[in-house]
Design a protein around this nucleic acid. Structure first.
Length: 430
RNA sequence: GUCCCCAUCGUCUAGUUGGGCCUAGGACACCGGCCUUUCACGCCGGCAACAGGGGUUCAAAUCCCCUUGGGGACGCCA
């Protein structure tokens, strides 16, 4: 059972937009949850009652130390090369609740806390490393380490799988589980994903939310496949469908070390899925992306044909939009290209092409190939001689899909129109 | 600084549990060639790693220790 829980106990960070982004990303990646979303901000009474229980059992205490004071002692400890932790000033003051007071957990002073991580193996820390963490803030809102322990226990969570950066939270949470009399779940800490500079992936490495990849023209199956293969593998297999991922994935096969995010490999996978995907479906996505860029998009079957023409050459939908623009809007070639390829001798050749194309039935590629063959025979020139001038005239670029495909997809009307424009240019410049 | 964790090609990784089959395999990227109407795709080939040092053993990428390097955490963030 898949329960989606939104951990939004920090008013400063949790906004409608931030949770919306999570929901959108889940949807895009194809995740579908059975329960929820459950918002922690709507369960405050539950956390407060458990907090009260801890107070009653003397496992938590109210603290009046100001944030400034706590921060100062932290800095001092750091300077003296000690582990910075709360000094326990208010632990035995027997304070009650108050407006600028926080509730702190009485952590163990001696002994060790350890757990058997499914990925990392046994992890042990000395309890004197752990300080009396804040359970309730001055505004009464509970903190993460507290809420997850309460929720995981009361919601019947058996396995906690999360990022490596949480390993040091785990002993604290275990102490909370124990203080509350809960059974502790199993933990699995998956390695981090790092940026090219080998530090934790963050905003400065570029895109961080899944939606950002959508916007850059990646397919969800590509992102999913890529991410799954970080710190995990199934022999030498690189390509996994969602079904295979579900079938083959085992948390026990996850490696222990962090992985560096490699955009090149993601790109390769994305290209793979663009090639494998149903052209109509990719065409639909291309249409969406192209409209966003201001192109006037016509029907689906045209988009499908465009996709078939260009997909070998583009690795993202964004690139595809950029590359296939000429299919939608005529783009004039650069002056230098026109000078080089639209030479006076092309005029009669283009004329001949137009004449032949006019009578051609655009049912398949071979008819178009025949037209070009006839024209090069008629003028006794190599195909090479006309390929580039035609390409320039039709696409405005020196690189494009094969000439025959371009002519076929563009259709009779556009081809003649564009060739005519080329002829006009030649006439004007002769 | 303190604590925790990690360590195979530039990158993702196989191999490590139960040492020999590893003159270390695959993939991305890169380089070269072929194909070719451009650009690609495709195909063929190449470069490239067990961090270092000690042990244990007939035998170590695989087990143990140390060193070094890297990461993470140290919040009234999650």
């Amino acid at each position: 059972s898949f329960v989606l829980r939104i951990e939004d106990t920090d008013f400063k960070r949790s906004t409608a937009e931030s949770t919306d982004q999570i929901l959108k990303a889940m949807e895009w990646l194809g995740f579908d949850w059975d329960e929820g979303p459950i918002y922690q901000s709507e369960r405050l009474d539950i956390y407060r009652s458990y907090a009260q229980k801890l107070v009653d059992e003397k496992k938590a205490f109210w603290c009046e130390c100001s944030p400034e004071k706590v921060e100062a002692s932290r800095q001092k400890a750091l300077k003296e090369k000690r582990n910075p932790r709360y000094d326990g000033t208010c632990r035995n003051k027997g304070l009650g609740p108050g407006s600028s007071r926080v509730l702190r957990f009485v952590s163990e002073d001696t002994g060790t806390t350890s757990f058997d991580d499914i990925i990392k193996g046994k992890i042990t820390v000395n309890n004197n490393e752990l300080d009396d963490l804040v359970l309730l803030r001055t505004d009464g809102m509970p903190t993460y380490n507290f809420t997850v322990a309460v929720d995981d226990a009361t919601m019947g969570i058996t396995h906690v799988i999360r990022g490596d950066d949480h390993v040091n939270n785990t002993p604290r949470q275990i102490q909370i589980y124990e203080a509350l009399g809960f059974e502790t779940p199993r933990f699995a800490h998956v390695p981090m994903i790092m940026g090219p500079d080998k530090t934790k992936l963050s905003k400065r490495h570029g895109a961080t939310s899944a939606i950002a990849y959508k916007d850059m023209g990646y397919l969800p199956e590509a992102l999913m496949n890529y991410l799954a293969r970080l710190s995990w593998s199934h022999g030498d297999q690189e390509i996994f469908s969602l079904e295979e991922l579900i079938k083959f994935f085992d948390i026990k096969d996850v490696g222990k070390s962090a992985a560096v995010f490699d955009m090149e490999k993601l790109l390769w996978l994305n290209h793979h899925y663009i090639m494998e995907g149903d052209p109509s479906k990719i065409g639909y996505l291309l249409g969406e992306a192209a409209s966003q860029k201001g192109y006037d998009i016509q029907g689906g079957s045209y988009l499908k044909q465009v996709v078939c023409d260009v997909r070998k050459r583009t690795k993202t939908l964004e690139e595809m939009v950029e590359y296939s623009g000429f299919y939608f809007t005529y783009k004039e070639p650069d002056e230098t290209l026109k000078k080089k390829f639209l030479t006076p001798d092309m005029e009669e050749i283009f004329d001949a092409l137009i004449t032949q194309i006019q009578d051609l039935d655009f049912s398949d590629l071979s008819g178009i190939e025949d037209v070009f063959r006839q024209v090069i025979e008629q003028f006794d020139i190599p195909f090479k001689k006309i390929a580039q001038p035609v390409r320039i005239s039709l696409t405005g670029k020196k690189a494009s899909p094969g000439i025959f495909e371009v002519v076929f997809t563009l259709g009779k009307e556009r081809v003649i129109e564009r060739l005519q424009k080329a002829i006009d240019y030649i006439k004007e410049n002769t």
